[in-house]
Design a protein around this nucleic acid. Structure first.
Length: 509
RNA sequence: CGGGCUGUGGCUCAGCUUGGUAGAGCGCUGCGUUCGGGACGCAGAGGCCGUGGGUUCAAAUCCCACCAGCCCGACCA
Protein backbone atom coordinates (compact mmCIF):
# COMPACT_ATOMS: atom_id res chain seq x y z
CA UNK A 1 0.00 0.00 0.00
CA UNK A 2 2.70 2.53 -0.93
CA UNK A 3 0.13 5.02 -2.14
CA UNK A 4 -1.82 5.03 1.07
CA UNK A 5 1.38 5.52 2.99
CA UNK A 6 2.49 8.34 0.73
CA UNK A 7 -0.76 10.23 1.08
CA UNK A 8 -0.93 9.85 4.83
CA UNK A 9 -0.57 13.18 6.59
CA UNK A 10 1.03 13.67 9.96
CA UNK A 11 -1.92 15.70 11.22
CA UNK A 12 -5.48 14.41 11.39
CA UNK A 13 -7.84 15.91 10.43
CA UNK A 14 -6.56 17.74 7.39
CA UNK A 15 -7.11 21.49 7.08
CA UNK A 16 -9.91 21.08 4.58
CA UNK A 17 -11.70 18.55 6.79
CA UNK A 18 -11.85 20.53 10.02
CA UNK A 19 -9.64 23.58 10.26
CA UNK A 20 -10.30 24.31 13.93
CA UNK A 21 -9.47 20.79 14.99
CA UNK A 22 -6.45 20.71 12.68
CA UNK A 23 -5.17 23.83 14.43
CA UNK A 24 -5.40 22.22 17.87
CA UNK A 25 -3.72 19.05 16.68
CA UNK A 26 -0.87 20.94 15.02
CA UNK A 27 -0.13 22.86 18.20
CA UNK A 28 -0.10 19.68 20.18
CA UNK A 29 1.95 17.70 17.67
CA UNK A 30 4.54 20.46 17.38
CA UNK A 31 4.67 20.81 21.16
CA UNK A 32 4.07 24.53 20.96
CA UNK A 33 1.67 24.71 23.89
CA UNK A 34 -0.97 22.82 25.80
CA UNK A 35 -4.03 23.72 27.82
CA UNK A 36 -3.35 23.97 31.53
CA UNK A 37 -5.60 23.06 34.41
CA UNK A 38 -6.17 26.74 34.95
CA UNK A 39 -9.25 27.80 33.10
CA UNK A 40 -8.45 29.49 29.79
CA UNK A 41 -4.73 29.51 30.41
CA UNK A 42 -2.05 27.67 28.47
CA UNK A 43 1.38 26.29 29.08
CA UNK A 44 3.76 27.51 26.40
CA UNK A 45 6.29 24.78 25.76
CA UNK A 46 9.92 25.41 24.78
CA UNK A 47 9.39 25.20 21.03
CA UNK A 48 6.47 27.63 21.16
CA UNK A 49 8.21 29.90 23.61
CA UNK A 50 11.32 29.86 21.42
CA UNK A 51 9.22 31.26 18.59
CA UNK A 52 7.89 33.96 20.89
CA UNK A 53 11.40 34.80 22.09
CA UNK A 54 12.53 35.28 18.52
CA UNK A 55 9.59 37.54 17.86
CA UNK A 56 10.43 39.47 21.01
CA UNK A 57 14.07 39.85 20.14
CA UNK A 58 13.43 40.99 16.61
CA UNK A 59 10.57 43.33 17.41
CA UNK A 60 12.48 44.74 20.34
CA UNK A 61 15.36 45.67 18.06
CA UNK A 62 12.92 47.50 15.83
CA UNK A 63 11.48 49.39 18.79
CA UNK A 64 14.94 50.40 19.90
CA UNK A 65 15.82 51.49 16.40
CA UNK A 66 12.82 53.82 16.42
CA UNK A 67 13.91 55.37 19.70
CA UNK A 68 11.83 53.40 22.18
CA UNK A 69 13.07 52.01 25.48
CA UNK A 70 11.71 49.23 27.67
CA UNK A 71 10.37 49.67 31.18
CA UNK A 72 8.10 47.76 33.49
CA UNK A 73 4.95 48.80 35.32
CA UNK A 74 2.82 47.02 37.95
CA UNK A 75 0.64 44.03 37.20
CA UNK A 76 -2.06 45.41 39.50
CA UNK A 77 -4.09 48.48 38.73
CA UNK A 78 -6.09 50.17 41.49
CA UNK A 79 -9.73 50.06 40.52
CA UNK A 80 -9.99 53.82 40.81
CA UNK A 81 -7.27 54.39 38.17
CA UNK A 82 -8.90 51.98 35.86
CA UNK A 83 -12.31 53.55 36.20
CA UNK A 84 -11.24 57.06 35.24
CA UNK A 85 -11.67 56.71 31.49
CA UNK A 86 -15.36 55.97 30.98
CA UNK A 87 -15.23 54.18 27.62
CA UNK A 88 -12.15 52.31 28.70
CA UNK A 89 -13.80 50.75 31.79
CA UNK A 90 -16.89 49.95 29.88
CA UNK A 91 -14.88 48.19 27.22
CA UNK A 92 -12.97 46.02 29.66
CA UNK A 93 -15.36 45.73 32.63
CA UNK A 94 -16.72 42.35 31.59
CA UNK A 95 -13.34 40.68 31.35
CA UNK A 96 -11.43 41.80 34.41
CA UNK A 97 -9.79 39.59 36.99
CA UNK A 98 -10.02 41.45 40.27
CA UNK A 99 -7.92 40.90 43.38
CA UNK A 100 -9.96 41.53 46.49
CA UNK A 101 -8.07 39.78 49.30
CA UNK A 102 -4.51 39.63 50.48
CA UNK A 103 -4.26 36.42 52.48
CA UNK A 104 -5.60 32.95 53.03
CA UNK A 105 -6.94 31.50 56.24
CA UNK A 106 -7.94 27.98 57.18
CA UNK A 107 -11.63 27.86 57.95
CA UNK A 108 -13.52 25.46 60.24
CA UNK A 109 -13.65 22.76 57.52
CA UNK A 110 -9.91 22.93 57.08
CA UNK A 111 -10.22 24.67 53.72
CA UNK A 112 -8.25 27.70 52.66
CA UNK A 113 -10.37 30.80 52.37
CA UNK A 114 -9.43 34.32 51.29
CA UNK A 115 -9.39 36.84 54.10
CA UNK A 116 -8.21 40.38 54.77
CA UNK A 117 -10.23 42.23 52.14
CA UNK A 118 -8.34 45.00 50.38
CA UNK A 119 -9.42 48.56 50.99
CA UNK A 120 -9.40 49.06 47.23
CA UNK A 121 -9.69 46.12 44.82
CA UNK A 122 -6.88 45.70 42.30
CA UNK A 123 -7.54 44.89 38.68
CA UNK A 124 -5.06 42.52 37.06
CA UNK A 125 -4.03 44.54 34.02
CA UNK A 126 -5.95 43.78 30.85
CA UNK A 127 -3.87 46.62 29.33
CA UNK A 128 -1.81 49.30 31.04
CA UNK A 129 -2.84 52.74 29.76
CA UNK A 130 -4.06 53.89 33.16
CA UNK A 131 -1.29 52.57 35.40
CA UNK A 132 1.39 53.80 33.01
CA UNK A 133 -0.41 57.12 32.69
CA UNK A 134 -0.12 57.58 36.45
CA UNK A 135 3.67 57.44 36.16
CA UNK A 136 3.80 59.61 33.09
CA UNK A 137 1.80 62.27 34.91
CA UNK A 138 4.68 62.53 37.39
CA UNK A 139 7.38 62.49 34.76
CA UNK A 140 6.01 65.17 32.49
CA UNK A 141 6.15 68.84 33.34
CA UNK A 142 7.58 70.53 30.32
CA UNK A 143 7.50 70.07 26.57
CA UNK A 144 11.18 69.32 27.10
CA UNK A 145 10.20 66.06 28.82
CA UNK A 146 8.53 64.89 25.63
CA UNK A 147 8.24 62.68 23.80
CA UNK A 148 8.14 59.70 26.14
CA UNK A 149 8.70 56.58 24.06
CA UNK A 150 8.36 53.48 26.21
CA UNK A 151 7.54 49.86 25.61
CA UNK A 152 6.71 47.14 28.09
CA UNK A 153 6.93 43.36 27.63
CA UNK A 154 4.36 41.84 29.92
CA UNK A 155 1.56 39.43 30.54
CA UNK A 156 -2.03 40.61 30.66
CA UNK A 157 -5.27 38.99 31.70
CA UNK A 158 -8.61 39.21 29.96
CA UNK A 159 -11.33 36.96 31.24
CA UNK A 160 -12.54 35.81 27.84
CA UNK A 161 -15.40 33.39 27.49
CA UNK A 162 -14.01 31.17 24.78
CA UNK A 163 -10.30 30.55 24.92
CA UNK A 164 -8.30 28.99 22.09
CA UNK A 165 -4.62 28.28 22.35
CA UNK A 166 -2.60 31.37 21.39
CA UNK A 167 -5.54 33.04 19.66
CA UNK A 168 -7.47 33.89 22.76
CA UNK A 169 -6.33 32.87 26.22
CA UNK A 170 -7.18 34.32 29.59
CA UNK A 171 -3.58 35.23 30.21
CA UNK A 172 -1.37 36.15 27.30
CA UNK A 173 2.03 37.67 26.64
CA UNK A 174 2.47 40.81 24.66
CA UNK A 175 4.28 44.07 24.28
CA UNK A 176 2.53 47.35 24.79
CA UNK A 177 4.07 50.62 23.70
CA UNK A 178 2.89 53.79 25.43
CA UNK A 179 4.03 57.16 24.22
CA UNK A 180 3.33 60.80 25.02
CA UNK A 181 3.86 63.65 22.58
CA UNK A 182 3.62 67.41 22.69
CA UNK A 183 1.47 67.72 19.60
CA UNK A 184 -1.41 65.93 18.02
CA UNK A 185 0.42 65.65 14.71
CA UNK A 186 3.42 64.01 16.33
CA UNK A 187 1.27 61.49 18.19
CA UNK A 188 -0.67 60.66 15.05
CA UNK A 189 2.60 60.17 13.20
CA UNK A 190 3.83 57.84 15.94
CA UNK A 191 0.69 55.74 15.57
CA UNK A 192 1.36 55.37 11.87
CA UNK A 193 5.03 54.74 12.36
CA UNK A 194 4.43 51.84 14.74
CA UNK A 195 1.81 50.37 12.46
CA UNK A 196 4.46 50.44 9.79
CA UNK A 197 6.92 48.70 12.11
CA UNK A 198 4.33 45.98 12.68
CA UNK A 199 3.60 45.59 9.01
CA UNK A 200 7.29 45.31 8.23
CA UNK A 201 7.90 42.83 11.01
CA UNK A 202 5.02 40.57 10.05
CA UNK A 203 5.94 40.68 6.38
CA UNK A 204 9.70 40.34 6.58
CA UNK A 205 10.07 38.17 9.66
CA UNK A 206 6.89 36.11 9.76
CA UNK A 207 6.47 36.01 5.98
CA UNK A 208 2.84 37.04 6.24
CA UNK A 209 1.33 39.76 4.05
CA UNK A 210 -1.16 42.06 5.73
CA UNK A 211 -3.60 44.78 4.92
CA UNK A 212 -3.32 47.79 7.16
CA UNK A 213 -5.87 50.40 7.89
CA UNK A 214 -8.17 52.04 10.35
CA UNK A 215 -10.76 50.29 12.48
CA UNK A 216 -14.38 51.30 12.18
CA UNK A 217 -15.90 53.08 15.16
CA UNK A 218 -17.46 49.89 16.50
CA UNK A 219 -14.15 48.02 16.51
CA UNK A 220 -12.13 50.84 18.02
CA UNK A 221 -10.08 50.34 21.20
CA UNK A 222 -12.11 51.54 24.20
CA UNK A 223 -11.03 55.11 24.85
CA UNK A 224 -9.10 55.62 21.61
CA UNK A 225 -9.71 58.34 19.07
CA UNK A 226 -8.39 56.24 16.25
CA UNK A 227 -7.39 52.58 16.09
CA UNK A 228 -5.20 51.23 13.31
CA UNK A 229 -4.57 47.57 12.70
CA UNK A 230 -2.87 45.09 10.43
CA UNK A 231 -5.02 42.23 9.24
CA UNK A 232 -3.67 38.91 8.04
CA UNK A 233 -5.54 36.16 6.22
CA UNK A 234 -5.07 32.61 7.42
CA UNK A 235 -5.77 29.41 5.55
CA UNK A 236 -9.44 29.09 6.39
CA UNK A 237 -9.65 32.52 4.76
CA UNK A 238 -10.61 34.28 7.92
CA UNK A 239 -8.99 37.49 9.03
CA UNK A 240 -6.88 37.82 12.10
CA UNK A 241 -5.77 41.06 13.65
CA UNK A 242 -2.03 40.80 13.97
CA UNK A 243 -1.24 44.12 15.61
CA UNK A 244 -2.86 47.39 16.61
CA UNK A 245 -1.77 50.96 17.07
CA UNK A 246 -3.99 53.51 18.79
CA UNK A 247 -4.07 57.27 18.71
CA UNK A 248 -5.54 58.12 22.10
CA UNK A 249 -5.81 61.89 21.65
CA UNK A 250 -5.90 63.55 25.05
CA UNK A 251 -8.46 61.15 26.49
CA UNK A 252 -6.08 59.28 28.75
CA UNK A 253 -3.79 62.21 29.53
CA UNK A 254 -6.79 64.10 30.77
CA UNK A 255 -7.88 61.36 33.13
CA UNK A 256 -4.32 60.56 34.22
CA UNK A 257 -3.28 64.20 34.51
CA UNK A 258 -0.43 64.06 32.00
CA UNK A 259 0.03 67.78 31.63
CA UNK A 260 2.91 69.95 30.54
CA UNK A 261 3.86 73.53 29.90
CA UNK A 262 4.08 73.92 26.15
CA UNK A 263 6.34 76.10 24.05
CA UNK A 264 3.93 79.00 24.48
CA UNK A 265 4.11 78.63 28.26
CA UNK A 266 0.56 77.27 28.55
CA UNK A 267 -0.57 74.12 30.32
CA UNK A 268 -1.54 71.41 27.85
CA UNK A 269 -2.52 67.76 28.06
CA UNK A 270 -0.15 65.31 26.42
CA UNK A 271 -1.08 63.47 23.24
CA UNK A 272 -0.74 59.75 23.78
CA UNK A 273 -0.55 56.56 21.76
CA UNK A 274 -0.46 52.88 22.56
CA UNK A 275 0.29 49.87 20.38
CA UNK A 276 0.60 46.16 20.89
CA UNK A 277 1.34 42.72 19.53
CA UNK A 278 0.81 39.47 21.37
CA UNK A 279 1.46 35.74 21.50
CA UNK A 280 -1.54 35.58 19.20
CA UNK A 281 1.05 35.99 16.46
CA UNK A 282 2.25 32.46 17.17
CA UNK A 283 -1.23 31.17 16.36
CA UNK A 284 -1.37 33.38 13.31
CA UNK A 285 1.92 31.93 12.13
CA UNK A 286 0.62 28.38 12.52
CA UNK A 287 -2.59 29.09 10.63
CA UNK A 288 -0.89 31.10 7.91
CA UNK A 289 1.88 28.68 6.96
CA UNK A 290 1.04 25.29 8.48
CA UNK A 291 0.19 22.31 6.29
CA UNK A 292 -1.29 18.86 6.79
CA UNK A 293 2.01 17.65 8.23
CA UNK A 294 2.18 20.35 10.89
CA UNK A 295 3.80 23.68 11.50
CA UNK A 296 5.89 25.34 8.80
CA UNK A 297 8.18 27.99 10.26
CA UNK A 298 9.72 30.90 8.41
CA UNK A 299 13.48 30.57 8.95
CA UNK A 300 13.77 34.00 10.53
CA UNK A 301 11.53 33.02 13.42
CA UNK A 302 12.39 29.33 13.81
CA UNK A 303 14.09 28.50 17.14
CA UNK A 304 16.15 25.93 15.24
CA UNK A 305 16.73 26.67 11.59
CA UNK A 306 18.57 23.54 10.61
CA UNK A 307 18.34 20.19 12.31
CA UNK A 308 20.95 17.55 11.61
CA UNK A 309 19.77 13.96 11.82
CA UNK A 310 22.54 11.41 12.17
CA UNK A 311 21.75 8.13 10.39
CA UNK A 312 23.47 5.41 12.36
CA UNK A 313 22.46 2.00 11.05
CA UNK A 314 25.71 0.31 11.99
CA UNK A 315 27.40 0.49 15.31
CA UNK A 316 30.87 0.65 13.78
CA UNK A 317 30.20 3.84 11.82
CA UNK A 318 28.17 5.53 14.52
CA UNK A 319 30.95 7.54 16.10
CA UNK A 320 32.16 8.81 12.74
CA UNK A 321 28.70 9.87 11.67
CA UNK A 322 28.12 11.77 14.90
CA UNK A 323 31.47 13.43 14.58
CA UNK A 324 30.68 14.54 11.04
CA UNK A 325 27.34 15.94 12.25
CA UNK A 326 29.00 17.93 15.01
CA UNK A 327 31.55 19.22 12.59
CA UNK A 328 28.88 20.39 10.17
CA UNK A 329 26.99 22.01 13.03
CA UNK A 330 30.08 23.95 14.03
CA UNK A 331 30.63 25.19 10.51
CA UNK A 332 27.01 26.24 10.14
CA UNK A 333 27.02 28.07 13.45
CA UNK A 334 30.05 29.96 12.26
CA UNK A 335 28.08 31.26 9.29
CA UNK A 336 25.24 33.74 9.35
CA UNK A 337 21.70 34.06 8.16
CA UNK A 338 20.45 37.67 8.20
CA UNK A 339 23.27 38.85 10.45
CA UNK A 340 22.88 36.16 13.09
CA UNK A 341 24.62 32.81 13.49
CA UNK A 342 22.56 30.00 12.03
CA UNK A 343 20.68 28.06 14.70
CA UNK A 344 21.57 24.40 14.36
CA UNK A 345 20.73 21.36 16.38
CA UNK A 346 22.12 17.85 16.09
CA UNK A 347 19.43 15.41 17.14
CA UNK A 348 21.40 12.64 18.80
CA UNK A 349 18.47 11.13 20.64
CA UNK A 350 18.33 7.37 20.61
CA UNK A 351 15.14 7.08 18.61
CA UNK A 352 14.09 5.51 15.35
CA UNK A 353 15.19 7.68 12.44
CA UNK A 354 11.71 7.95 10.98
CA UNK A 355 10.21 9.03 14.27
CA UNK A 356 12.76 11.77 14.68
CA UNK A 357 12.34 12.97 11.12
CA UNK A 358 8.58 13.27 11.53
CA UNK A 359 8.89 15.08 14.83
CA UNK A 360 10.90 17.80 13.15
CA UNK A 361 8.49 17.95 10.24
CA UNK A 362 5.63 18.49 12.65
CA UNK A 363 7.60 21.16 14.47
CA UNK A 364 8.19 22.94 11.18
CA UNK A 365 11.96 23.25 11.29
CA UNK A 366 12.92 24.84 7.95
CA UNK A 367 15.76 22.52 6.90
CA UNK A 368 16.52 18.92 7.78
CA UNK A 369 19.94 17.45 7.05
CA UNK A 370 20.62 13.74 7.10
CA UNK A 371 24.10 12.37 7.39
CA UNK A 372 24.74 8.64 7.27
CA UNK A 373 27.62 6.30 6.42
CA UNK A 374 26.97 6.59 2.68
CA UNK A 375 27.13 10.39 2.91
CA UNK A 376 30.37 10.11 4.85
CA UNK A 377 32.00 8.17 2.02
CA UNK A 378 31.10 10.87 -0.47
CA UNK A 379 31.48 13.72 2.02
CA UNK A 380 27.96 14.74 1.15
CA UNK A 381 24.67 15.50 2.91
CA UNK A 382 21.00 14.93 2.19
CA UNK A 383 18.80 17.98 2.55
CA UNK A 384 15.02 18.33 2.90
CA UNK A 385 13.19 21.64 3.00
CA UNK A 386 10.01 22.06 4.99
CA UNK A 387 8.46 24.22 2.28
CA UNK A 388 8.73 21.32 -0.13
CA UNK A 389 7.33 17.80 -0.17
CA UNK A 390 8.22 15.72 2.84
CA UNK A 391 9.80 13.10 0.61
CA UNK A 392 11.81 15.53 -1.50
CA UNK A 393 15.53 15.25 -0.93
CA UNK A 394 18.48 17.04 -2.38
CA UNK A 395 22.01 15.68 -2.27
CA UNK A 396 25.10 17.84 -2.21
CA UNK A 397 28.66 18.02 -0.96
CA UNK A 398 28.90 19.00 2.67
CA UNK A 399 31.02 22.03 1.87
CA UNK A 400 28.53 23.12 -0.74
CA UNK A 401 25.74 22.99 1.78
CA UNK A 402 27.71 25.08 4.23
CA UNK A 403 28.11 27.68 1.49
CA UNK A 404 24.48 27.52 0.44
CA UNK A 405 22.76 27.21 3.83
CA UNK A 406 22.03 30.86 4.23
CA UNK A 407 20.66 31.10 0.69
CA UNK A 408 18.45 28.08 1.25
CA UNK A 409 16.98 29.67 4.36
CA UNK A 410 16.44 32.89 2.49
CA UNK A 411 14.74 31.03 -0.31
CA UNK A 412 12.39 29.28 2.12
CA UNK A 413 11.55 32.57 3.78
CA UNK A 414 10.71 34.13 0.41
CA UNK A 415 8.80 31.13 -0.77
CA UNK A 416 6.59 31.13 2.32
CA UNK A 417 5.83 34.78 1.85
CA UNK A 418 5.01 34.36 -1.82
CA UNK A 419 2.82 31.40 -1.08
CA UNK A 420 0.93 33.27 1.66
CA UNK A 421 0.59 36.32 -0.54
CA UNK A 422 -0.78 34.33 -3.44
CA UNK A 423 -3.28 32.67 -1.14
CA UNK A 424 -4.34 36.01 0.27
CA UNK A 425 -4.63 37.62 -3.16
CA UNK A 426 -6.50 34.65 -4.63
CA UNK A 427 -9.06 34.98 -1.89
CA UNK A 428 -9.43 38.73 -1.92
CA UNK A 429 -12.15 40.02 -4.18
CA UNK A 430 -13.70 43.30 -5.17
CA UNK A 431 -17.41 42.99 -4.67
CA UNK A 432 -19.91 45.41 -6.11
CA UNK A 433 -23.33 44.34 -5.00
CA UNK A 434 -25.09 42.99 -1.98
CA UNK A 435 -26.02 39.65 -3.54
CA UNK A 436 -22.48 38.80 -4.54
CA UNK A 437 -21.38 39.84 -1.09
CA UNK A 438 -23.82 37.49 0.60
CA UNK A 439 -22.94 34.67 -1.81
CA UNK A 440 -19.26 35.18 -1.14
CA UNK A 441 -19.70 34.73 2.59
CA UNK A 442 -22.30 31.95 2.57
CA UNK A 443 -21.01 28.37 2.66
CA UNK A 444 -22.59 25.92 0.21
CA UNK A 445 -22.95 23.30 2.88
CA UNK A 446 -24.59 25.00 5.83
CA UNK A 447 -24.61 21.86 7.97
CA UNK A 448 -20.85 21.48 7.79
CA UNK A 449 -19.50 24.70 6.33
CA UNK A 450 -16.59 24.26 3.96
CA UNK A 451 -13.75 26.79 3.86
CA UNK A 452 -15.21 29.73 2.01
CA UNK A 453 -15.18 33.50 1.68
CA UNK A 454 -12.05 35.54 2.16
CA UNK A 455 -11.48 39.28 2.06
CA UNK A 456 -14.14 41.33 0.28
CA UNK A 457 -13.26 44.80 -0.88
CA UNK A 458 -16.55 46.64 -1.00
CA UNK A 459 -17.81 50.19 -0.79
CA UNK A 460 -19.52 51.09 2.45
CA UNK A 461 -21.15 54.29 3.54
CA UNK A 462 -19.82 54.07 7.07
CA UNK A 463 -23.22 53.29 8.54
CA UNK A 464 -23.04 51.54 11.85
CA UNK A 465 -26.47 49.96 11.35
CA UNK A 466 -25.33 48.28 8.16
CA UNK A 467 -22.22 47.03 9.89
CA UNK A 468 -24.41 45.55 12.61
CA UNK A 469 -26.77 43.97 10.11
CA UNK A 470 -23.95 42.32 8.15
CA UNK A 471 -22.44 41.03 11.34
CA UNK A 472 -25.73 39.49 12.41
CA UNK A 473 -26.47 37.99 9.00
CA UNK A 474 -23.05 36.67 8.05
CA UNK A 475 -20.70 37.15 11.04
CA UNK A 476 -18.72 39.34 8.70
CA UNK A 477 -17.20 42.60 9.93
CA UNK A 478 -15.21 45.52 8.57
CA UNK A 479 -11.64 44.47 9.27
CA UNK A 480 -10.13 47.78 8.34
CA UNK A 481 -10.51 50.86 6.24
CA UNK A 482 -7.36 51.09 4.14
CA UNK A 483 -5.23 54.18 4.56
CA UNK A 484 -3.62 56.13 1.78
CA UNK A 485 -4.91 58.29 -0.96
CA UNK A 486 -5.51 55.73 -3.63
CA UNK A 487 -9.15 55.86 -2.57
CA UNK A 488 -11.81 55.95 -5.22
CA UNK A 489 -15.26 57.25 -4.46
CA UNK A 490 -18.11 54.84 -5.08
CA UNK A 491 -21.49 53.84 -3.77
CA UNK A 492 -22.20 51.71 -0.72
CA UNK A 493 -23.16 48.28 -2.02
CA UNK A 494 -25.78 47.92 0.71
CA UNK A 495 -27.49 51.32 0.72
CA UNK A 496 -26.40 53.04 -2.49
CA UNK A 497 -25.22 55.99 -0.44
CA UNK A 498 -21.97 57.69 -1.44
CA UNK A 499 -18.85 55.96 -0.20
CA UNK A 500 -15.38 57.37 -0.14
CA UNK A 501 -13.64 54.04 -0.63
CA UNK A 502 -13.74 50.29 -0.52
CA UNK A 503 -13.16 48.75 2.89
CA UNK A 504 -12.04 45.24 3.79
CA UNK A 505 -14.69 42.83 5.03
CA UNK A 506 -14.11 39.35 6.40
CA UNK A 507 -14.98 36.83 9.03
CA UNK A 508 -12.51 37.26 11.82
CA UNK A 509 -10.86 35.45 14.68
C1' C B 1 -24.07 34.37 31.19
C1' G B 2 -28.13 31.24 28.27
C1' G B 3 -28.83 26.03 25.27
C1' G B 4 -26.76 21.07 24.29
C1' C B 5 -22.96 17.28 25.28
C1' U B 6 -18.99 15.03 28.15
C1' G B 7 -15.85 13.79 32.71
C1' U B 8 -12.75 6.11 33.42
C1' G B 9 -4.17 5.04 33.36
C1' G B 10 -0.13 10.26 29.79
C1' C B 11 -3.75 10.42 25.12
C1' U B 12 -8.42 8.60 22.49
C1' C B 13 -12.24 5.99 24.30
C1' A B 14 -15.28 1.08 25.67
C1' G B 15 -17.85 -0.60 30.11
C1' C B 16 -23.16 2.30 32.75
C1' U B 17 -29.44 0.66 29.89
C1' U B 18 -29.81 -4.73 33.40
C1' G B 19 -25.17 -2.50 40.32
C1' G B 20 -21.11 -7.94 41.89
C1' U B 21 -12.51 -8.96 40.65
C1' A B 22 -11.38 -1.90 36.16
C1' G B 23 -10.73 -2.87 30.10
C1' A B 24 -8.82 -1.78 24.78
C1' G B 25 -5.81 0.91 21.26
C1' C B 26 -1.99 4.47 21.17
C1' G B 27 2.00 6.25 24.30
C1' C B 28 5.64 4.77 28.21
C1' U B 29 9.71 1.04 30.39
C1' G B 30 12.79 -3.46 29.50
C1' C B 31 14.64 -7.35 26.25
C1' G B 32 15.09 -9.12 21.32
C1' U B 33 14.55 -8.66 15.84
C1' U B 34 14.57 -4.78 12.34
C1' C B 35 16.08 0.07 10.54
C1' G B 36 18.73 5.72 5.17
C1' G B 37 13.41 5.64 8.54
C1' G B 38 7.07 7.42 11.51
C1' A B 39 8.71 -1.13 11.79
C1' C B 40 7.72 -5.73 14.62
C1' G B 41 7.56 -9.54 18.67
C1' C B 42 7.58 -10.70 23.81
C1' A B 43 7.42 -9.03 28.82
C1' G B 44 6.04 -5.05 32.11
C1' A B 45 4.69 -0.34 34.74
C1' G B 46 0.75 2.80 35.30
C1' G B 47 -6.37 4.05 37.59
C1' C B 48 -9.48 6.86 45.36
C1' C B 49 -13.72 5.55 37.20
C1' G B 50 -14.19 14.67 38.13
C1' U B 51 -15.63 16.03 43.65
C1' G B 52 -19.07 15.56 47.71
C1' G B 53 -23.38 13.34 49.52
C1' G B 54 -27.37 9.60 49.15
C1' U B 55 -29.74 4.56 47.96
C1' U B 56 -27.81 -0.58 48.63
C1' C B 57 -25.10 -6.39 51.60
C1' A B 58 -22.49 -4.21 47.34
C1' A B 59 -21.86 1.80 43.08
C1' A B 60 -17.54 3.53 37.38
C1' U B 61 -22.75 1.82 36.83
C1' C B 62 -28.84 4.24 40.14
C1' C B 63 -30.33 9.35 42.60
C1' C B 64 -29.00 14.56 44.19
C1' A B 65 -25.66 18.61 44.42
C1' C B 66 -21.29 20.86 42.99
C1' C B 67 -16.89 21.45 39.91
C1' A B 68 -14.43 21.24 35.27
C1' G B 69 -14.09 20.76 29.98
C1' C B 70 -16.11 20.75 24.83
C1' C B 71 -19.65 22.54 21.03
C1' C B 72 -23.46 26.52 19.72
C1' G B 73 -24.81 31.80 20.98
C1' A B 74 -23.53 37.04 23.23
C1' C B 75 -17.98 39.37 24.35
C1' C B 76 -12.96 39.81 22.58
C1' A B 77 -6.05 40.61 20.56
Amino acid sequence: MPNAAASKTAITPRRDEDFAEWYQQVIRAAELAEPSDVRGCMVIRPWGYGIWENMQRQLDAMFRATGHRNAYFPLFIPLSYFAKEAEHVEGFAKECAVVTHSRLEVDADGKMKPSSPLAEPLVVRPTSETIIGASYAKWVQSYRDLPILINQWANVVRWEMRPRLFLRTTEFLWQEGHTVHESEAEARAETLRMLDVYETFVRDHLAIPVFSGEKSESERFPGAVRTLSIEAMVQDRRAIQAGTSHFLGQNFSRTSGIQFQNREGKQEFGWTTSWGMSTRLVGTLVMAHGDDDGVVLPPRIAPTQIVILPITPKEETRAKVLEACDQLARKLRASCYVDLPIEVEVDRRDLGGGVKNWEWIKKGVPVRIEIGPRDLEKDSVTMSRRDQSVKAKEFMAMEEFVQRASDVLMSIQENLYERAKKFRDDNTRKIDNKKDFYDFFTPKNSAKPEIHGGFALADWSGSREIEEEIKNDLKVTVRCIPLGDCAQAGRCIFTGEPSSRRVIWAKAY
